[in-house]
């Protein structure tokens, strides 16, 4: 077993919305090993990006702590902060908002190099930047160096974001829906580039997506966590989660996903939910947050007690009363 890189204990984040508090993350616990791919899936608003931002050190948790290489993020020295920023990078979701519109692509990619590796001359910089652009498929490089972000398409900007995250040879990358605007074929080749970095340099990924098929492809040897309204409802190895999902929400997600094969996708067995609208974070259901939509809902139990994430059969962790057989005890 490889060593632990990152651990979160009871991670909670509350945002203020006017006078009210909105709980976006509610007591997450998990750890990520060095060289692992840890994938998070879930619908919008489930807190997956917030978790990613906290792990990347861009947002402070309201309660609970994050440990990186045995150091609590809240108690770092100035030197440790700088080392952390070199080791940990984030690829943001929205490439329209995350690239400075007044800088050229060359500037965007060379600033982090100058910040973390002082004393590079122009020739070295140009060479490094060109390498990065080639890596993410923005060729011919000369066409892109002097462009501004507004001259690029969504997919091209996402590739610049990916290249920017790779500038400082990070060891841990938070990838937030980084390929959502890129065409399938290129998407696969970019993910392969990321996977190659992992095998060669042992990079660890925290991969955020809403596409389970993509999660399966990218995290084939890693783990997938399914989040629902700020909580992890199921956590298992990618292969196990896809082949033998336990939580009703995971089952629903997997069965709802269309597949690129007309025969398979039109005869696919559905796991029907009883409700279609995701509850608002302002007004969360009591007990298990999934119970208003859950076909397994047990009256007097699921709406009252919140299930905790517990190991099931030793192969995965699930937060569900019914899976753990607690419903029969009542």
């Amino acid at each position: 077993m490889s060593s632990e890189l990152c651990r979160v204990n009871n991670l909670t984040r509350v945002f203020n919305k006017g006078a009210r508090d909105v709980v976006v993350l509610n007591g997450l616990n998990f750890s990520i090993n060095e060289g692992e791919t840890f994938c998070v899936v879930g619908e919008s608003g489930c807190g997956k990006s917030t978790t990613g931002r906290i792990l990347a050190g861009l947002l402070q948790p309201t309660a609970g702590d994050v440990w990186f290489r045995g150091v609590n993020l809240a108690e770092r020295s100035k030197k440790q902060v700088k080392a952390f920023r070199k080791e940990v990078q984030m690829i943001h979701q929205d490439p329209y908002a995350s690239l400075n519109p007044t800088r050229r692509i060359f500037d965007i990619l060379s600033y982090p190099l100058l910040r973390h590796r002082r004393g590079m001359d122009y020739g070295e910089l140009l060479e490094s930047v060109s390498d990065l652009l080639t890596k993410v498929g923005l060729t011919p490089v000369e066409d892109f160096l002097d462009k501004y972000p507004h001259q690029l398409s969504g997919g091209q900007r996402q590739r610049v974001s990916i290249a920017r995250a790779l500038t400082v040879d990070p060891k841990f990358i938070v990838v937030d829906e980084a390929t959502s605007m890129i065409d399938t074929s290129l998407k696969i080749s970019l993910l392969d580039t990321l996977t190659k970095l992992q095998t060669e340099l042992g990079v660890t990924y925290f991969f955020i997506t809403h596409d389970l098929a993509l999660a399966k492809h990218f995290a084939w040897n890693g783990r997938i966590a399914v989040m629902y309204l700020g909580e992890i409802v199921e956590l298992a190895s990618a292969q196990h989660l896809i082949q033998a999902p336990q939580h009703p929400y995971t089952k629903a997600l997997l069965s709802a996903l269309p597949e690129a094969d007309p025969q398979v996708t039109r005869t696919k067995k559905r796991f029907e939910l009883t409700g279609h609208e995701i509850p608002s974070l302002d007004n969360l259901p009591t007990g298990c947050k999934f119970h208003p939509r859950c076909p397994w809902n047990v009256k007097g139990l699921c709406g009252v007690n919140a299930p905790s994430l517990q190991s099931f059969n030793g192969s995965c962790s699930v937060a569900c009363h019914v899976v753990h057989g607690e419903s029969h005890k009542n």
């Binding site: 498929g137 060729t139 399938t184 074929s185 290129l186 998407k187 696969i188 080749s189 392969d192 389970l212 098929a213 993509l214 399966k216 492809h217 084939w220 896809i242 082949q243 997997l254 996903l257 597949e259 690129a260 094969d261 398979v264």
Partner: peptide, 23 residues
Amino acid sequence: AGLIQAVPTLSSTHEDLKSIPGS
């Protein structure tokens, strides 16, 4: 054919997705 081979699916157990080279 290239597009079809580049799409990840759930039903397969193991796969070797191929991207279309070039742009």
